Simulated assay, not measured.
Amino acid sequence: MTRIDTTFAALKSERRKAFVAYIMAGDPDLETSLSIMQGLPGAGVDVIELGVPFTDPMADGPTIQLAGQRALDGGQTLDKTLDMVRRFRAGNDTTPIVLMGYYNPIYSMGVAHFLEKATDAGIDGLIVVDLPPEEDSELCLPAQAAGLNFIRLATPTTDDRRLPKVLQNTSGFVYYVSITGITGAAAAQAAQVGPEVARIKAQTDLPVIVGFGISTPQTAQDIASVADGCVVGSAIVKEIASGKPVADVLDYVRALADGAHQG
Rank of each mutant, 00 (worst) to 15 (best):
T2M: 00
F8A: 06
F8T: 01
K12R: 09
S13I: 09
S13A: 15
F19D: 15
A21W: 02
M24S: 14
E31N: 07
E31L: 03
M37G: 11
P41I: 05
P41R: 06
A43T: 03
F54I: 07
T63G: 14
T63W: 04
A67G: 11
D73W: 06
R86W: 10
G91L: 08
N92Y: 14
T95D: 01
V98F: 11
Y102L: 08
G110R: 07
V111P: 06
H113C: 11
F114W: 06
A118F: 02
A121L: 11
L126Q: 07
D130E: 02
L141W: 05
P142S: 02
P142C: 00
A146H: 07
A146W: 00
N149S: 10
R152K: 11
D160L: 12
L167V: 06
L167H: 05
N169P: 12
G172L: 10
V177G: 01
S178W: 12
T180N: 09
T183V: 06
A187M: 14
A188I: 00
Q192V: 15
I200P: 08
I200A: 00
Q203P: 11
D205Q: 05
V210I: 01
I214H: 04
S215W: 00
S215A: 05
A224G: 10
S225K: 06
G229F: 02
S234A: 15
V237S: 06
G243H: 12
P245H: 11
V246L: 07
V246M: 12
D248R: 15
H261W: 06
Q262I: 05
